[in-house]
Structures are given as structure tokens and as C-alpha cells.
């Protein structure tokens, strides 16, 4: 089997790119506090990660059920053909997402953006 210098240059480029990607994405890898759901590129809703909730989303593409539970969020159910989204499991960190490609639906966890996030309400 023959691999040449150029092969290793290609491998090195890929490794450097992915390492850079890991570092870049990990800087944003903080604890999330909001769940943002987007359907077809437009925002469907934002929910606090801290309070349990089940959200049913019905769009022209199909229906999905997103569940927020104990500070994590996951796709509980979906009527898409591959059901990859349901298999993706639970996410908690900011930048993490569950994606249902056939329904063009993205469930993303975002970090608190300082001023606008409320940790608790005194009443």
C-alpha cells in the first residue's frame, strides 16, 4: 500500500480544520439556558431550559413533539420518515441542537444572553 506525502498533507489539513472547529465551537460550549425552536428558518418559539414543558409543533411538513425535562431537551416524537431527530437524544449545552431535516425543524440550546434572561421570578 502506497501513501505519499501529498496524502499526509491532505490528512493534516483536515485534522487542523477539525481541531480548529472543535476549539472554536467549544468556546461557545457553555451551559445553555434557552431552547430556541426554528421551523424552516423562522423562529417558532423560545422556552426556558429550566422549566419542564412539552411542545407540539405542527407544520406543513409534519408534526414533532419536543420535550424539555430536567434541564435537557429532546425530540420526544416525530412523524418524519427517518426519525433521526428522535434518535439524537438529549442535549443540554449551548450550541447543541436536535435537527429534524425532513421537517426543516431545528431545536437549539442557546446560552443566556445576559440582560434578557431571567433566572427566577420573585413574587
Amino acid at each position: 500500500m502506497k501513501m505519499n506525502k501529498r496524502d499526509f498533507i491532505a490528512i493534516a489539513v483536515v485534522l487542523v480544520l477539525s481541531a480548529a472547529g472543535f476549539l472554536f465551537l467549544n468556546t461557545k460550549h457553555a451551559q445553555g439556558s434557552r431552547v430556541v425552536i426554528t421551523v424552516g428558518g423562522s423562529e417558532y418559539g423560545t422556552y426556558p431550559l429550566a422549566s419542564d414543558k412539552v411542545i407540539e409543533i405542527k407544520s406543513e411538513n409534519g408534526s414533532n413533539t419536543v420535550a424539555i425535562e430536567n434541564g435537557s431537551v429532546y425530540m420526544k416524537d416525530a412523524d418524519c420518515p427517518d426519525r433521526y431527530c428522535v434518535k439524537q437524544g438529549r442535549i443540554t449545552d449551548s450550541g447543541d441542537s436536535v435537527i429534524c431535516l425532513p421537517h426543516k425543524l431545528v431545536v437549539e440550546v442557546c446560552a443566556s444572553d445576559g440582560e434578557n434572561t431571567i433566572d427566577a421570578v420573585a413574587k
Binding site: V14, L15, L17, S18, A19, G21, F22, L25, T38, G40, G41, S42, G95, D96, S97, I99, L101, K104, L105, V106, E108
Partner: peptide
Amino acid sequence: LQSAAITYYFPVLLV
């Protein structure tokens, strides 16, 4: 998806 969220998978998919 009209979303950049998926780029999160970029490094994993490269490797």
C-alpha cells in the same frame, strides 16, 4: 434548514 445550528457537527463530520 436556513439555520447555522448544524455547523455544530462540522468538526465531528470532518473527522
